[in-house]
Design a protein around this nucleic acid. Sequence first.
DNA 1: CCTTTAGGGAACGTGCCGTACCTTGTAGGA
DNA 2: TCCTACAAGGTACGGCACGTTCCCTAAAGG
Lengths: 188, 188
Amino acid sequence: MVGARRRGAALEEAILQAAVDELTESGYPGLTMDRVAKRAGTNKNAVYRRWPNRAALGIAAYHRLTATTVEVPDTGDLRTDVLELLRMANRTWSSPYGEILRGLLADPDLLAQLGERAADGGSAMWLTVLGRAVARGEVRPEALHPRVATVAVALLRNEFVTRGVPNAPDEVLVEIVDEVYLPLVRSR
Amino acid sequence: MVGARRRGAALEEAILQAAVDELTESGYPGLTMDRVAKRAGTNKNAVYRRWPNRAALGIAAYHRLTATTVEVPDTGDLRTDVLELLRMANRTWSSPYGEILRGLLADPDLLAQLGERAADGGSAMWLTVLGRAVARGEVRPEALHPRVATVAVALLRNEFVTRGVPNAPDEVLVEIVDEVYLPLVRSR
DNA sequence: CCTTTAGGGAACGTGCCGTACCTTGTAGGA
DNA sequence: TCCTACAAGGTACGGCACGTTCCCTAAAGG
């Protein structure tokens, strides 16, 4: 045979990569243990030896999929920065991430394990952007509060969850920024 | 036998009620056609003759479950009204509705059919409450905009979706109202 | 070289969806 | 009152997926 039998880390890596591929192609509902095993060129035994069930594998694959650091925009103008952050989020949640995330969110077990990254909406980024705007006098200092800072992305996520759309139209993003976010945080 | 064979509307009613019961007990993932049929004292044939698949039955059951009109609070004070609306939403989404709704939201097909009731967050209620507050001079008239009016419930839903909690603590509701909603809509 | 460990292959039990086929009761007209 | 068309009941099936089990085989390491 061409390929030697893989073991340990190499096999684990292959399985995880196969899971990521399946997740991106078919979403969480389409992530099946049989297909992951087949795609990784192994069998379910090797998979179950590492992840106790489909949910755990789904989480691992999702984490690998989203393990990417983003650059916080800094254009010197709050509205531009905020819109850029929102557009980034919109792109991130666009297909196939959205469907994947929705599939994961449906299972309460998964939700608990997904960690706070999804939950806090990357508040650090928003606080950074707002902090600069406060320094420029664009924003009132009381807005430097996680609940306030992440309002825009929370509204976008709400839009994304309640409507089934793969991505929100740009008008919605602009509306969120101009009708809600800027009026909320701007200096009086 | 005690029971005569049911037909038509009576049987349909029994099936739908069984589906509602299963939905409340086990959530959408636990809603199985076999169990609904058994619970209704009939067989899957009768179910499939009325609803083409599990998703359709789930939607029908959910609609029946949530077919309730709520009374819009009118205390004369915006903060009290808004908090009451939020608390109502929080109660509604508490177990088992939350899990049910999450289960439904996971399926894009369902999402499209769920209608706009879930999506628009009952904007009419919020516009009513805000409208009265505008008349009292508590709120700036520009806030009478669906996107703005429903910010509070959108944030709560976001809290509810991203974290797996059955219901949000009251402090979160208060924070949403005092840190975000009131500063956003109040007259300057 | 030989033992231990882990991967490979395949089958199984279970649960569920959706379908098919046949039997039996019932409504409603002749 | 009787008969027929139709709806309900009963049961089984094919397909798929999860998670488990059993046995065989390759690799690692002393």
